[in-house]
Write a protein that binds this DNA or RNA. Structure first.
Lengths: 197, 197
DNA sequence: TTTTTGTTTGACATTTTTGTCAAATGCAAA
DNA sequence: TTTGCATTTGACAAAAATGTCAAACAAAAA
């Protein structure tokens, strides 16, 4: 994080790339397209980041870091479990309005050989989370299953509708407003489904 | 390897493209890469499909059709609801071994302006499915919610772990075998979660 | 046999995309 | 002012990817 003072344009380029990738889902935007979207000369991409790939890598790492922060936020919180989840859902659905394609982008990048960096940290974090989940199950607040499965249920129910939105929306024949409404209701649905209210 | 028969090559190219896209997740494979993987001269792609885009479109439409067939399979079946879902899960998890990245590919294509074709058919199909779901809810076999939300729960819980596998696997620190096992257990988890056993 | 037809190939042209570089610009410090 | 430094630019080079074409090829039909 604490690298050096990023110049304004450097940050602008990065942010624009993120916007194209995470917000608009244009995963293979060219350097020219990124530069245009940023209102900047294309060669500045080479100036600040040596190459297109380097830029892509940095954006990827940033996104990873963000995911890690998300995870820490939920695991280290002292709130009661159910409230933690609830709070996280608020946070997630808000974030997802800005960057709906973040998760799906990560997958495509990993598939193209982008190396995952913070494996250890995330793994450790998840282990803590598993313990918390297991405790809730013991107390009868959650249906019993492998904590990993609960985690996957959790992520699936929240992320998927956002990531797959264009496909779901088309196949369901929904307009933007209708689908927005569906997503609004989603938080309560997820809570009910996870906790079997 | 003598594929000299009539238009076997055309099919070969299509199948190879699908393999690269859906099985290996290489969404922006070049024509050369596709040709090489098929063991075929690159210009044959232009001969059978006029352009790269045309090939991509055809593969996309094929995949769409397949999704539609899947949908029909589940909706038109006369089995009791719960058994239909169970049967579908068997089918889905089996298919997903061949083409884990099918759904995610579709999303990226839609994002890049690929037009969705069988909108109405799918929409009609889903309407029928909603009725079936609503009936089950009336009968107390399912927790009450908008049928659309149940559908999304259903798809999310099944598709997501498969689509996002590389990312999940890395961040969970799982190896291939361990994650396979997790997916094996997945069917029962999905059933339990959907039906609140 | 020759002809026809559909298929395959390699060479070439074009387009798209990326990367390099020297010169220009602007701005702050000396 | 001049100097130094980071930034920005346009022209150019290089590479990557797609598309075209005439000719070669093979197998069936005439």
């Amino acid at each position: 994080m604490s690298d050096k003072k990023d110049s304004v344009t450097e940050q602008l380029i990065k942010d624009t790339a993120k916007k194209l990738f995470f917000a608009e889902g244009r995963f293979n935007a060219t350097t020219q397209e990124i530069a245009d979207a940023a209102g900047v000369n294309r060669t500045l991409i080479n100036y600040y980041f040596r190459s297109r790939n380097k830029l892509f890598d940095i954006v990827f790492e940033d996104a990873q870091e963000k995911e890690l922060e998300r995870g820490e936020m939920i695991v280290t919180s002292d709130l009661p479990f159910k409230e933690k989840i609830s709070q996280y859902l608020d946070f997630f659905f808000e974030e997802s309005k800005r960057y709906p394609y973040l998760e799906i982008y990560m997958v495509t990048q990993v598939n193209q050989g982008c190396r995952y960096k913070s494996e250890e940290k995330m793994s450790n974090l998840l282990d803590k989370f598993y313990l918390q989940i297991a405790l809730e199950m013991e107390n009868g607040n959650l249906p019993k299953m492998r904590p990993e499965q609960f985690l996957i249920n959790f992520i699936s129910l929240t992320s998927f509708p956002v990531s797959m939105r264009p496909l779901l929306q088309k196949s369901m024949g929904y307009g933007d407003e209708a689908f927005d409404k569906l997503l609004e209701e989603r938080k309560q649905i997820v809570m009910d489904t996870l906790f079997k209210s």
